[in-house]
């Protein structure tokens, strides 16, 4: 469709974050600007035309992709009468913030928000440790059963916790953990995906660095802490962000594992707000709930989107 003759770097880069020692052939050298060779025989006009076409396509797609968000925001600012009225277009005719106040109160969102932060932070902290340790073991040690164990870790990617709701629910009840935040967090304390990612990243670190550290008398944990982790931060960050997004939005397992609002995350809160609309769906209220739930992650992403995509590109996920 498009015949771009330039292949400029994906993004501008923050030189302070340039990773060292990423495996050759990987996304290591985004930071260096590649020359933009021009193809002989293609006129400037035809290039512009092609680029224009690509941009128009992209713009149309982007607008289409944004519609659900914009439509939700518009509805969340609207009064109940306008929602069903014939003439209502995109701009709220009677903008009001009252839906947000009502949704916030009806939906108990203050509790859910705190719960979500606790749950997500708890998972990420523990995962950070477990995937680093396991990734290090698989990247830099030979031991009996390594292949089998690594396959088992990869299998966890294919068989997620939610697929096993029935037995996992039973396990949680026999541990008397149903309706606790632990029940939501525990199954996610290990991650096959994260382990795989960190293994790939650690394998890209030149072993000489570890040798040097050992000569200096470093213990294994010091090597991990001061040699490996600083050099693989993009991978860890990319994993952390994917994991945050996943657990912030996770719904099915928390719904099953908990009963009371004091333990449930915001996604469940939103679903309950929707489910409690039996005597008339108040779309303006529900859309305010949707916006409340979506906004925190969206703002974080807007601020960090450049760094996020960059770190992803450099994480060696491929």
């Amino acid at each position: 469709m498009t015949t771009e003759s330039t292949a400029e770097p994906l993004l501008d880069d923050d030189p302070g974050e340039a990773p060292a020692g990423i495996a050759p052939g990987s996304a290591a050298d985004l930071a260096t600007t590649r020359p933009a060779p021009t193809r002989a025989g293609v006129s400037l006009w035809s290039r512009l035309l092609r680029q224009g076409t690509a941009n128009v396509l992209l713009l149309a797609a982007a607008v289409f992709w944004l519609i659900p968000l914009l439509w939700s925001i518009a509805a969340s600012l609207e009064g109940p009468v306008q929602i069903t009225a014939d003439g209502w277009g995109w701009l709220p005719t009677h903008p009001t913030g009252v839906n947000f106040v009502n949704a916030w109160n009806d939906g108990n969102f203050s509790i859910y928000l705190v719960n979500t932060v606790i749950i997500v932070a708890g998972i990420i902290l523990v995962q950070g440790v477990t995937v680093s340790l396991a990734g290090y073991a698989f990247a830099r040690f030979d031991f009996a059963g390594k292949r089998l164990l690594f396959t088992l870790y990869l299998l966890q990617i294919m068989v997620p916790v939610t697929a096993l709701v029935l037995p996992n629910y039973q396990t949680m009840s026999s541990l008397h953990l149903i309706d606790t935040k632990w029940a939501i967090m525990l199954p996610y304390f290990a991650s096959g995906f994260g382990t795989f990612l960190m293994r790939q990243a650690f394998r890209g670190v030149p072993p000489e660095l570890e040798d040097a550290a050992i000569l200096d008398g470093a213990a294994w944990w010091q090597t991990v802490r001061y040699v490996y982790l600083p050099l693989t931060r993009p991978s860890l960050a990319a994993f952390a962000l994917v994991s945050i997004a996943f657990h912030w939005n996770d719904f099915f397992w928390p719904l099953i594992a908990t009963n009371s609002s004091s333990n449930r995350p915001i996604s469940v809160g939103l679903a309950l707000l929707t489910a409690s609309q039996e005597s008339g769906t108040q779309w303006n209220l529900i859309m305010a709930g949707v916006v409340i739930v979506v906004l925190p992650l969206l703002i974080v992403f807007l601020i960090f989107q450049r760094a996020f995509i960059n770190s992803f590109a450099r994480s060696g996920i491929k």
Partner: peptide, 24 residues
């Protein structure tokens, strides 16, 4: 403009995480 670095991001995440654990 320079994007907010991951160094800062990870420090923010750690701070939030620790304070919430205390809160819990």
């Amino acid at each position: 403009h320079a994007p907010i670095s991951f160094g800062r991001l990870s420090r923010i995440i750690t701070a939030v995480a620790l304070s919430t654990v205390l809160l819990t």
